[in-house]
Amino acid sequence: MIRRQFLAMAMGTAAAGALGGYSAALGATNGVAAAADATADDVAAAAAFRAASRFMKTAFGNIAYAERGRGAAALFLHGFPLNGYQWRGALQRLSPYRRCIAPDFLGLGNTEVAPGQSVAPDAQVAMLADLLDRLGIDRVDIIANDSGGQAAQLFLARYSQRVRTLLLTNCDSEIECPPPALLPVLELAKQGRFVQEWLAPWLADKALARSPQGLGGQTFTCPSHPGDEAVDTYLGPLVRNADRTHAYAIGLDRNWLQGIGPALARFDGPTRILWGTGDTIFSERGAEHLDRSFGNSRGVRRIEGAKLFFPEEFPDLIAEEARALWGV
Rank of each mutant, 00 (worst) to 15 (best):
A120S: 10
L131N: 02
A10L: 05
F55R: 15
A204S: 07
Q258E: 13
V195F: 06
F49C: 03
L257M: 10
I2W: 05
G79S: 07
N255G: 09
A247W: 07
A157T: 04
L77V: 05
H225S: 15
A18Y: 00
V125A: 04
R139C: 03
L108Q: 14
P115E: 09
V125K: 13
Y234E: 06
K190T: 00
V231D: 12
F194K: 02
P226E: 08
R134M: 13
S53C: 13
Y234F: 15
W275I: 12
D172R: 13
R254Q: 12
G69N: 10
A263T: 04
T277N: 05
G79H: 05
D41C: 03
A306L: 11
L325S: 00
A204L: 05
A8C: 02
R254V: 06
H246G: 01
A38I: 02
F76H: 02
Q213S: 11
Y65M: 15
A38G: 01
A48V: 01
S293V: 01
A319W: 02
A144G: 07
I273W: 01
P201H: 04
P184G: 06
A114W: 13
W275L: 09
L19V: 10
S224N: 13
K57E: 05
E176R: 15
D232V: 08
L94F: 08
L19H: 02
A59S: 13
A24K: 13
D232I: 07
Y248I: 07
V185Y: 03
Y97H: 07
R244Y: 00
N30P: 10
Q191L: 14
L182V: 14
R139G: 03
D104I: 14
C222I: 00
G109A: 09
A52D: 04
D172Q: 13
A265I: 02
K190M: 00
P103L: 13
S160A: 15
F80A: 10
V328D: 14
A14V: 07
A8I: 02
A36K: 15
A52Q: 09
R158Q: 15
V163Q: 11
A189G: 00
I273M: 00
R323S: 00
E312G: 06
G31S: 12
L203I: 01
L235S: 06
G269Y: 07
F294Q: 05
R266A: 15
N145M: 04
G216V: 02
W275F: 12
A16N: 12
L308H: 12
A35S: 04
L317T: 06
L106E: 02
A249F: 06
G149S: 11
P103R: 11
A15G: 06
A64H: 12
A18C: 14
A14N: 11
G148V: 11
E321R: 01
N83W: 07
G84V: 07
D228H: 10
E174K: 00
L168Q: 10
V119D: 05
G261Q: 13
A102V: 07
R193G: 01
L131Q: 04
R139P: 03
G27M: 08
A306R: 12
T165D: 03
H78Y: 02
T39I: 12
D279P: 11
D42V: 07
L94A: 09
P311E: 04
R88Y: 05
S224C: 10
R302Y: 15
Y159A: 04
P81L: 05
G116D: 02
D122C: 06
